[in-house]
Amino acid sequence: MTWTAPAVTRIPMPTLGDERPHLQGWLDHHRQTLLLKCAGLTAEQLKTAAVAPSNLTLLGLVRHMAEVERWWFRRSFAGQQVGDLYCSEASPDGDFDDLATADPETDLATFHREVALADQAVAGRDLAEEFTSSRGRQLHLRWIYLHMIEEYARHNGHADLIRERIDGTTGV
C-alpha cells in the first residue's frame, strides 16, 4: 500500500474573547491549512515542484515551517539550544533543496513535533515578554505570533498553487 499524507480536520477559531486565543487560533488555522494542502498526496507528489525553474514543493514548505517554528519559538524566544533540522552551512536551504532522499512521513511527524514543542515553549508566557532577536532587535512574543501567521499565510498561498498544479484541488 502506498503511503499518503493523512487527512486533517481544522479546529474552529475563536471569534470572541481575548487576544491570545485569537492569535493561537489563527496560527493553528494556518498550520492546519498547510497540512490540508498535503492531505491525500503520496510521497512523490509532496516532492513535486510547482513549475520550473522553481524547486518549491509542499514537502519543502512543511520542512521549512518546521524550521521556522523551531527558530522563532524555541531558539529565539525561549533560548533553547537546538540546532537546525534540515539546513546547514553546506546546504543553507536544505529544507527546500534536499528532498531526493527525504521521507515525507518522517518530515510530517517532525513538523507535528516542532509545533507541539513550540506551543510548549510559549505556554503561559506573556505576549508582551521581550527577547532579543539574532539581529539584535528587541521583540515581543506577540511579534512572533504575528510573524508566524504572516509566514504561514504567504506559504499557504504557495501551497494552494502547488496543490492545484499537482491534482487540480483548490480551496480549503
Rank of each mutant, 00 (worst) to 15 (best):
V8T: 13
V8S: 06
V8W: 07
T9E: 07
T9I: 05
R10G: 12
R10C: 11
M13G: 04
L16H: 00
L16K: 00
G17Q: 04
G17L: 03
E19C: 09
R20Y: 11
R20S: 10
R20N: 08
R20C: 07
H22M: 00
Q24V: 13
W26G: 03
D28S: 13
H29W: 14
H29K: 08
H29T: 04
H29I: 03
R31V: 07
T33F: 13
T33Q: 09
L34P: 00
L34R: 03
L34C: 07
K37E: 10
C38A: 15
C38R: 07
C38K: 09
C38M: 08
A39K: 02
G40D: 03
G40E: 04
L41V: 01
L41F: 01
T42A: 05
T42Y: 02
T42L: 07
T42D: 03
A43Q: 03
E44S: 03
L46C: 14
K47Y: 08
K47S: 04
T48D: 09
A50E: 06
V51R: 13
P53V: 06
N55H: 11
N55E: 09
N55K: 15
L59C: 01
G60N: 06
L61R: 04
L61Y: 04
L61K: 03
V62Q: 10
V62P: 03
M65H: 12
A66E: 08
A66M: 12
E67F: 10
E67S: 12
V68N: 15
E69M: 14
E69D: 13
R70N: 09
W71L: 12
F73D: 04
R74E: 01
R74G: 02
R75W: 14
S76Y: 11
A78E: 01
G79H: 04
G79I: 06
Q81A: 15
D84K: 14
D84S: 10
Y86K: 06
E89R: 08
E89W: 07
A90I: 05
D93F: 12
D93N: 11
D95S: 10
D97Y: 11
D97V: 10
L99G: 06
L99S: 07
L99F: 08
